[in-house]
Design a protein around this nucleic acid. Structure first.
Length: 485
RNA sequence: CGGGGCGUGGCGCAGUCCGGUAGCGCACCUGCUUUGGGAGCAGGGGGUCCCCGGUUCGAAUCCGGGCGCCCCGACCA
């Protein structure tokens, strides 16, 4: 960096910008363990707010939390063929414990389908025991070749939901219910509106019949798979003997779903909203929604008293605040720091404000042609904070949505055109597809773009494509292509 | 695993070519003055120069081997 105080601009090097934001806004830091990061309080606070919102949504739809072991017998993972093939390369395995070689190695869970369904098998006898709707908040480990803070770490935090149902229709409905919850959460809490749809076979979860995903578009126009919801059919139920007796008295295998979102969402938030000054945290996720900076000159007591009073008033209105009373930093230094950390609003209180009965209010994002800072009568500034936070939340979502739409190219009809669009910096590109994996492979080879999903109806183009982008055969589905994280 | 870059006080770097007392900026500590957009002055503390071996009177610097990290690719949430 030419100037240590400034970040590398996004337009110069997006990846470097991303790393600098994560490190310098104190979301996370590299750890002594390869590929594993430390999530610092600012980052963890954001994750906690995500957890709280999602957890409530899960509970409102009938799910309960439980906890299953970190270690899974190796033989469990091996039981489902596609599952083991998908995960084998990235497993971390415990072979020794208590100073002895283990008879059977344990894998550190990369995901918990196997151990969870083995337990469900024990608990389910009758159709009356269904559905089983559980979620767990946990850490998992996947030994990835190359890691990136939040986006792909060896160990990461997530929630994984696992359900069992009596019928495929009900399981499918559950899969889509969760997909909708994820989408709503991403839109309303992260301000990161994804497109949703079905994964192609080559991109689906190892062991699933069908996978659905939320695909968000980052500021560099690469797609981020931000959440997945899988219809597992009876694949795992058969391997783990998860059976029940139906109303008609028949013994049947249960139908499963699994679904998850992870700390990757924090990375998505960074890349959706951040700017060249640093992070921008949507108000609903911000651990501090308004930071109060007292301007101290000589007689500090009245200013500090007012700061405490303002904080108390804002708290009553449900606004999360913090008073930054550090004496070793000038106000300007604090402004830069909190802006880099993405706090939505800053309230300044100085002697002049006390005299005039006003507060200075500064916004993290300044609308075009407006000033960052405005001076408001104290009562208005306080009373108006909740609605300002809500407005700011919506602005972020609207801005992200507009960007996604502006960078989505539709109606592309040939491989040349697709290549040109991707090379030209497009985000999502929609085309027809004949369903042949060979087309995916060829496009990936040439453009580095992959099928992100077969979009759900509302994301499809007004006129469905009739031909495959390859020029060979009719289109069986419209697909969205993008380079992905 | 392939390509590129880099390992020197907490952070960012110079010094390495051409061996000779380990430096700079920021941060930190003390004091005073400051404080409305990254404060100033004075004093001070802190480093097995990634590791191991070799050459040499002497190695951050030269030679050999190893390890680690970041970026780009293949793999992936």
């Amino acid at each position: 960096m030419a100037d240590e105080k400034k970040l590398t601009p996004r337009g110069e090097d997006f990846a470097t910008w991303y790393n600098e934001v994560v490190l310098r806004s104190e979301l996370a830091d590299y750890s002594p363990v390869r590929g594993s990061m430390v999530i610092r309080p600012w980052g963890y606070g954001i994750w906690e707010n995500m957890q709280r919102a999602l957890d409530q949504m899960f509970k409102e739809t009938g799910h309960e939390n439980a906890y299953f072991p970190l270690l899974i017998p190796m033989s469990f993972i091996e039981r489902e063929k596609e599952h083991v093939e998908g995960f084998a390369p990235e497993l971390a395995v415990v072979t020794q414990a208590g100073g002895k070689e283990l008879e059977e190695p344990y894998v550190i869970r990369p995901t918990s389908e196997t151990i969870i369904y083995s337990m469900y098998a024990k608990w389910v006898q009758s159709y009356r025991d269904l559905p089983v709707l559980m979620n767990q908040w946990a850490n998992v480990m996947r030994w990835e070749m190359r890691t990136r803070l939040f986006l792909r770490t060896s160990e990461f935090l997530w929630q994984e939901g696992h359900t069992a149902h009596a019928t495929p229709e009900e399981a499918e409905e559950e899969t889509l219910l969760i997909l909708g919850i994820y989408r709503k959460f991403m839109e309303e809490w992260i301000g990161m509106p994804p497109i949703t749809g079905l994964k192609s076979d080559s991109e689906k979860f190892a062991g699933a019949v069908r996978s659905y995903s939320c695909e968000a578009l980052m500021q560099d126009n690469r797609a981020l798979q931000a959440g997945t919801s899988h219809f597992l059919g009876q694949n795992f139920a058969r391997q783990f003997d998860l059976k029940f007796q139906s109303e008609a008295g028949q013994e049947e295998y249960a139908w499963n779903t699994s679904w998850g979102v992870s700390t990757r969402l924090v990375g998505g938030m960074v890349m959706t909203h951040g700017d060249d000054d640093g992070l921008i945290v949507p108000p609903r996720l911000a651990p501090v929604q308004a930071v109060i900076v007292p301007i101290l000159r000589g007689d500090d007591a009245p200013v500090m008293a007012k700061a405490a009073e303002v904080q108390a008033r804002l708290r009553e209105l449900g606004v999360r605040t913090k008073i930054d009373a550090r004496e070793n930093l000038s106000p300007g230094a604090k402004y830069y720091e909190w802006e880099r950390k993405g706090v939505p609003f800053r309230v300044e209180i100085g002697p002049k404000d006390l005299e005039k009965g006003q507060l200075a209010l500064a916004r993290r994002v300044v609308p075009e042609g407006e000033k960052r800072k405005e001076f408001l009568p104290e009562a208005d500034a306080i009373a108006g904070m909740p609605s300002r936070l809500e407005a700011f939340q919506s602005e972020l979502r609207d801005r992200a949505l507009a960007r996604r739409e502006a960078n989505t190219v539709r109606g592309v009809k040939s491989l040349d055109e697709l290549h040109e669009a991707i090379e030209g910096g497009a985000g999502f590109v929609s085309t027809g597809w004949n369903g042949d994996p060979a087309v995916e492979e060829a496009v990936k080879e040439r453009t580095k773009a992959t099928i992100r999903c077969l979009p759900q109806e509302e994301f499809r183009s007004p006129e469905a494509p009739t031909k495959c982008v390859s020029g060979e055969g009719a289109s069986v589905a419209e697909v969205f292509w993008a380079r992905a994280y």
